[in-house]
């Protein structure tokens, strides 16, 4: 399951004799079919690339140019591209503040989710306590609960303890709604550790805490990494939760940009570079950790 982005070996079984040379007509047919497949995929690749290229080029054009013509016209006049939008945006302070808020929300929300889920997942896997199976069944049930159901009541709850409209409030919500999947994933991962290894460590006199820290956590590292990446991207990209729980001085980039959507068209010099900035971090994470990302996607297909 680890190398999903690499192609499986082409449909020839190793060791067997080469199949007999097909007849010429069949070879030509196969060749044209190969060409058709290439063409279809090339068109699809262009379609998939185009929106992002459009956003990038729009973010590099002066506002007046974007109002007058489409981004593709700039390909004929590359000299019209400029970084002015970015310098103006980053000089403004507001966007930088929102960017910083995004970091302040995403990093603790990821760290806390992984830490709490590792503890609980370990307990569900290797500790004995009454009602363990039933309790875990509840966690399985909570896997698909939509965050929307929590918005109103948790807003009241956080308001009562003074956390509504603050970064910790947003973080807590993200942790709570990230936990079911995280606990589910890590509990299954910890169960993969062979019983003999666990027993051997315990007989050697290791305390439970040491077994958890020194043995279980290192062995589950790949799963912890996938989980961390997914949770980080989820929180970084979130808009709904922050829209409800963040205040004006704790709002992340997504909410700041969303508040600009009403004037869409006249403020492309803010929206396009802002959107591009906000997707830069996730895309960088994606390309540097694609292996874990794929594993997470596979595991996530229960959520």
């Amino acid at each position: 399951m680890t190398q999903l982005l690499t192609r499986p070996a082409p449909g020839r079984s190793a060791g067997s004799a080469r199949p007999p040379r097909p007849r010429l007509a069949a070879r030509i047919a196969a060749r044209t079919r190969g060409g058709a497949v290439q063409a279809v995929l090339l068109v699809a690749a262009a379609l998939w690339l185009m929106p992002t290229v459009g956003l990038l080029l729009t973010s590099l054009r002066p506002k007046e140019d974007s109002a007058a013509s489409g981004w593709w016209t700039v390909l004929a006049h590359p000299a019209r591209l400029t970084l002015d939008n970015y310098t103006a945006l980053l000089g403004g302070g507001e966007v930088l503040g929102a960017f910083w808020n995004t970091v302040l929300i995403s990093v603790p929300a990821t760290a806390l989710t992984v830490a709490l889920a590792a503890l609980a997942g370990y307990a569900f896997a290797w500790l004995e306590f009454p009602g363990r199976d039933w309790l875990f069944l509840v966690v399985v049930c909570l896997l698909v609960v939509p965050v929307q159901i929590g918005l109103v009541p948790v807003a009241r709850l956080l308001g009562a303890i003074g956390l509504f409209g603050t970064v910790p409030g947003v973080v807590l919500f993200h942790v709570a709604y990230g936990l079911p999947f995280a606990v589910f994933l890590l509990r299954n991962q910890f169960l993969e550790i062979p019983q003999e290894i666990m027993e051997a460590a315990r007989i050697d006199g290791c305390g439970e805490w040491r077994v958890f820290r020194r043995l279980a956590l290192p062995l589950a590292l790949p799963a912890l990494a996938s989980l961390a990446i997914f949770q980080f991207l989820w929180v970084w990209n979130d808009m709904l939760v922050a829209l409800v729980f963040a205040g004006s001085d704790s709002q992340p980039l997504t909410v700041l940009l969303q508040s600009q959507m009403r004037q869409f068209g006249s403020n492309l010099d803010v929206l396009a570079p802002g959107a591009f900035l906000s997707l830069l971090v996730p895309v960088a994470v994606f390309f540097s950790c694609q292996r874990y990302f794929v594993q997470g996607a596979m595991a996530g297909s229960v959520k």
């Binding site: 982005l5 699809a44 690749a45 998939w48 690339l49 992002t52 956003l55 991207l233 970084w236 990209n237 979130d238 808009m239 997504t254 940009l257 969303q258 959107a275 591009f276 906000s278 997707l279 996730p282 895309v283 994470v285 994606f286 390309f287 694609q290 990302f293 794929v294 996607a297």
Partner: peptide, 13 residues
């Protein structure tokens, strides 16, 4: 890789 990449992007972007 190219087609999978949009999954990392926020709905807002």
């Amino acid at each position: 890789l190219l087609v999978f990449m949009p999954m990392a992007i926020s709905f807002l972007a």
